[in-house]
Nucleic acid binder design. Structure first.
Lengths: 368, 368
DNA sequence: GTGAAAGCGCTAACAA
DNA sequence: TTGTTAGCGCTTTCAC
């Protein structure tokens, strides 16, 4: 047991303690410890030894107050329980840690108010930057403000037009179009799309209120909308002009994908295939199909976004559009860190490749 | 636009700014803002208005440096991609936010070294407390040290004997025993257990090296082990003395539950039912069953821990032991916060109820 | 009830 | 290269 005369046992060692022990000034100790400025090899070593002996740990709070950097990132996603966001978050935390950053997590449940509150909290905590899967692509004032105030923002999964921030996404339109083409290639013509969108539907526009068509949100850009456009493009390409008959979109918290599917299956001419825009929706589709006594893929074909664990374990295994979830998170971290470290390049939009994985959930339509 | 003569536009407002604007001293402003000490209603209101006008936001870093409290919790789990931990983490972040705390997240992949590193990082960041699903229940020196140094720790999902920390768990033994009883009640006698355990198996003890038995880790307590004991108890209770014939445990990163199951199914007298100790293992079992051309539940019955989304959407829906995942996280947060706020009661061990949910994955054994 | 002054632990100009 | 000095923004005695 070493006796540290000048330092009460309970209190953690500070720079003055280390400096005293090493017989140098505070600044030299600080320079040696934080590794900046110039310090003689000799002094450096004595400081290192003293720090070691005293079990010195820098007070990161004090350091952050001076440097203005906390080495903490904020991650704002819809719901960590959604496998897509779980994977993305895993990618974020891993990449962050590897780069010497920690991450503060916030869930929004696709609610803009919650997102706004999260940004506020996170900024109050002085995070160095924000990774956000925005709940809405239009109401992004809080994100723009953060960005402008020097707290860089990178958008994940969704872009926001007019917000000069980096983004990391996949080609939703192309991937959706490709998936629907697979269904078309198998001979399907009555192909449904089931999705949940972030914003509430706009006011009823009268003419649009056809029995089958669901009004779409006004958000100019959203993952869901892009996938819908990809779906429509594929149908049009196949000569099917009526692209909205089997289109069903609900709102988070308000509609259940299983109900949306049940409606479709109750139609006089029900769809023979369904394209689900994410794995949780696919679960709802599966559920509804089961309740209707329909078998996949014989009675109903299915393809979905997101390759979750269960997709390859259930029977039939389900064909999916796999997104590189962890990579999405890791790329976002890298973009963000270059910004934090001062890069002033124009906004960079990274688009990652998806992969269609063919399994057993697509068959020709019944009676074909 | 108000002109703030004394404050450059770029710099955020500070207490001196607010004080000046309100015509009071810094201390009065501080007292009014942080709501302590005594301030006259009049001064209080003037300060409030000035702060509002200037868009004042307290510098939490500076405050933390003084108060020693960051209002930040550290959450250390195995893998956020595991639905169990995703749910727990969701419960943690929600409860924390509701109580005015944020959470820093760390994944360990069941690796003690990673856990140790995470604790170090988190303590360096001055978290007010730690919620840990410990990778090992024996090597807990770093947790004990944190606790002793005034950084309270609450254990989640797993207890650690000898560590005087609060814990929040479920009755794994009882729940496992109950689940296996369901299988027994359906007429099964050859019931397997498939699990993955945290620690590496101990050195070969010779006699124990029966072809069928898998050596178990030496960890005195672990979720997996408790479930195994519950399984054995149920079998013994049913008069089956040979409890380890169909017991298969692997190690994280080393074994694949599907392979473990495949071994079982290749036995001359294969099991007719499987008890999986978590949902990710159940997926492996399902996979292996499919590869063997076995149908659930006709050829093989299945019951698993954890009620994940897919368990109620696949066909057949799988019977499960549901854990109150979010509640587990929320309780941990509450225990932790009472500690942080100074409670000095003896360690408290909260045990939450599980719920057996009967679905369609259990049938009588084939040929029964 | 209020203000003056000290100080948390650290970094960063500036001199020496 | 090194030490001195001055803060960062805040809370908190301690007088008044």
């Amino acid at each position: 047991m070493t006796t540290n005369r000048s330092r009460p046992a309970g209190r953690p060692a500070t720079i003055p303690d280390v400096a005293r022990e090493a017989g140098v000034s505070r600044s030299t100790a600080s320079r040696a410890l934080a590794d900046y400025g110039s310090v003689s090899p000799d002094a450096r070593e004595r400081v290192r030894a003293a720090a070691e002996k005293l079990g010195y740990r820098p007070n990161l709070l004090a350091r952050s107050m001076i440097t203005g950097r906390t080495h903490t990132l904020g991650a704002i996603v819809a719901d960590i329980q959604n496998p897509f966001f779980a994977g993305v978050t895993r990618g974020i935390t891993d990449a962050a840690r590897a780069a010497g950053y920690q991450v503060l997590l916030a869930n929004t449940d696709e609610d803009v108010a919650a997102e706004r509150a999260a940004v506020k909290m996170l900024r109050d905590k002085h995070v160095d930057g924000l990774i956000v899967a925005p709940a809405a692509t239009t109401e992004t004032g809080h994100l723009a403000a953060a960005h402008a105030a020097g707290c860089p923002v990178v958008l994940l999964d969704r872009q926001a037009p007019g917000l000069p921030a980096d983004s990391v996404t996949v080609d939703n339109h192309g991937a959706a179009q490709d998936a629907v083409r697979r269904l078309l290639a198998a001979g399907h013509r009555r192909i449904a799309l089931v999705s949940l969108l972030g914003s509430a539907p706009p006011a009823d526009t009268g003419a649009e209120r056809a029995a089958a068509a669901t009004p779409l949100p006004t958000d100019p850009v959203s993952t869901g909308l892009e996938r819908i456009e990809g779906y429509r493009a594929a149908l049009r390409e196949a000569g099917l002009s009526d692209t909205d008959t089997y289109l069903r979109t609900g709102t988070f918290h308000r509609e259940d994908p299983a109900d949306l599917t049940a409606d479709l299956l109750a139609l006089p001419e029900p769809p023979t295939a369904v394209f689900a825009t994410d794995s949780m929706i696919a679960l709802g589709v599966l559920s509804a199909a089961r309740d209707h006594g329909l078998r996949v893929p014989d009675d109903l074909s299915l393809v979905t976004f997101d390759d979750t664990d269960w997709a390859r374990a259930v029977r039939p295994r389900v064909s999916v559009v796999a997104q590189p979830v962890q990579e999405l998170g890791a790329r976002a971290v890298h973009s963000l860190i270059t910004r934090i470290e001062g890069a002033t390049r124009p906004p960079e939009h990274t688009v990652l490749d998806t992969e269609y994985i063919d399994r057993e959930s697509i068959a020709p339509p019944p009676g074909a």
